[in-house]
Amino acid sequence: MKFLQSIGAKTITKVAAIGRATLMLFGALVAVPRLKNVPLIIHQLYVVGVQSLLIIMVSGLFIGMVMALQGYTILVDYGAEGSLGPMVALSLLRELGPVVTALLFAGRAGSALTAEIGLMKATEQLSSLEMMAVDPLRRIVAPRFWAGMLAMPMLAIIFSAIGILGGHLVGVDWLGVDSGSYWSIMQSTVDWNQDVLNGVIKSVVFALVVTWIAIFKGYDSVPTSEGISKATTETVVYSSLAVLGLDFVLTALMFGIE
């Protein structure tokens, strides 16, 4: 009985949390956008987007390089090293670009968002905004949400582009695959709607999930040092799991059914 009871209690807590998260997002997004808030969004874009650029670019480069190296050793046995270009490009655009960007984003920007909002709560800054008749959902949550939504797809595109260049560096410049076939077979294989656009859609969905989790975990955190540390960890764990799970669902929907 105790066991059943604890399952029930946990379910109720989780469902209540989902409800609170939805209310928070709703409260942040129904607001009429004000011109005053544009600089806030731009500032947040800098924080979550521009400051994540370096880690995204370095990771993209190395992943592209590793893929070219691995792909080459397999493809060369069949004399198919000309297909290295599409292999690298398709893996990056369809899967690795959106997914790895989302995972890195959760660790780099998501955890920072959670900690920042959690600390604002702990130091009563959110309460004091409310008492100043400024809605923290609109002032703090909304700009961060939109910045995340805008930044992540852009980061994913940059990640894939750098990865493809990294693949070129290893495959063409070091291992001697023909440069013409690297690019031309890639061009004829990669489809704009099927591959590029689907990758961007994935990345928009991941952006929604990761940013939402990060902001909600901060906003809903227990305002103590222990609570914030727990919230930050949960942000990274939940967003990573959500991204990987959703990736399977999205892949099945986009590429699974012919």
């Binding site: 130091t123 009563e124 309460s127 004091s128 409310e130 008492m131 100043m132 008749a133 809605d135």
Partner: peptide, 16 residues
Amino acid sequence: YKARRRMSMLFQSGAL
């Protein structure tokens, strides 16, 4: 929110 513009609160930590 309108009423809150007429009141203000000094938090223990300052909350700057």
